[in-house]
Design a binder for these strands. Structure first.
Lengths: 230, 230
DNA sequence: CACCATCTCCCCCTTTTGGGGGAGAGCCGA
DNA sequence: TCGGCTCTCCCCCAAAAGGGGGAGATGGTG
């Protein structure tokens, strides 16, 4: 049995969704909430499997509430939530979508979907998957492809480097100085300088800062993978 | 009427998909292909709305074929394809998914989905949307959230900078030298040095290369946005 | 074998960078 | 009005980086 909570400030809408879902044999609506604050409390109390969350709500919006429910940051005690959140809203500006995904939502569907699709989304997410409205999936893919995409022509340039030179470039992109690279690769500083020079020359770059940019742009280095503790 | 082409090296599988789709009132299978090379020719000849593409195929795999069909790069004349590609495969390693999205695919579904879901996917994509298997959507979201997410704690450090310093940091992250930054911001080189120094000092960085890394990690600079022509 | 690419290291040299001060002008809030 | 912040610029200096060349040691290939 999938235990669901419905969060929406409009009681009528809330009841509507709840009825649709409760009508399914494998789904049970165990709680409802009308504000973000209520949602947080109710989620703590009922520990639902799935939370259907509206965005626009008084007191605290659904995105903020989602973040707080899924990331018990503050008082990090005991509160390992297992709930998964599906954002269910009328609007879909990119900003909302990104914030929702950042907050940890497993779905983002628009309220204009047919009831069966909503039920299907609940089952999919309960099953460990994720569900986005087609148009949103589309935009997410575009964004993603864009971030990966530029790599194309740049990768060709990358291939002109020798293995060692790519290692050196990776080290540069990690923020290492020549001396540190020398230590890391067990070679002398002079050798590092040689490699750095040929990397810059082969790639048509001027200095190591540009090399870092190049590494990120072509995907040799990627944001999110590094501790910027230096 | 949605005009579909099915590409798979196994004739039996191909016919199976074709029959399922042809059975629908609004879908018509107009072509089939058994290799990547055939797929490219057939796509050119029949201009289908949707192409269902397997990955593992002799001669040329489905990802390469997808890229070539969607990006007429070489002879960039006249060949504005309007087809949209759904990758339909048994395997789903991340590598395939990313390459598929990079190649421009609008969907990535596994062959174990129920027939109705396949039909639904075709309609969704024909309608301008995109469709991914739930598990893949899940992973795509994770990847995406990760890239957006790290910015959190780093953004705090960013906020310690003054406006001007952030401008200078952005310029550094664009691969500019101090002299170029001076020109770009209409200030003297000495001033740039001052700003650079305080940026490094405030962020606890050692040199401009680390500053570039920081900018990418915290989202001030993002991959995909820049021409690495320098 | 000779050739070429790669990796390793050395020299000398110029430019850039980064750190350490100092200082004047403007702006804003106490 | 005064102190603090920011932006602007200056000085000197040491360290790092980058360019140019050379050179020995591999290893593979024609």
């Amino acid at each position: 049995m999938i235990r669901v909570m419905v969060v929406d400030d409009q009681a009528l809408v809330r009841r509507g969704f709840a009825l649709v879902l409760d009508n399914e044999r494998d789904i049970e609506v165990v709680a409802e909430a009308g504000t973000g604050v209520e949602a947080i409390e109710a989620a703590r109390a009922h520990q639902p499997d799935i939370i259907l969350m509206d965005i626009r709500m008084p007191e605290m919006d659904g995105l903020e509430a989602t973040a707080r429910i899924l990331q018990p940051e503050e008082n990090a005690e005991a509160d390992a939530t297992t709930s998964r959140v599906i954002i269910l809203t009328t609007f879909d500006p990119d900003e909302y979508v990104f914030r929702a995904l950042q907050a940890g939502a497993s779905g983002f569907v628009l309220k204009d979907i047919p009831p069966e699709a909503l039920v299907e989304a609940v089952r999919t997410v309960a099953d460990g998957g994720a569900m986005l409205s087609p148009g949103i999936t589309q935009r997410l893919i575009s964004q993603f492809a864009q971030k990966l995409g530029t790599g194309r022509n740049l990768t060709e340039r990358l291939e002109r480097l020798t293995t060692r030179e790519r290692e050196v470039l990776a080290a540069i992109a990690a923020g290492k100085s020549n001396a540190e690279i020398a230590d890391a690769l067990f070679i002398g500083p002079a050798t590092v300088k040689t490699h750095v020079s040929s990397v810059l020359s082969k790639l048509g770059l001027r200095d190591r800062a540009q090399a870092v940019v190049f590494a990120y742009e072509c995907g040799l280095a990627t944001a999110g993978g590094r501790d910027v503790g230096f």
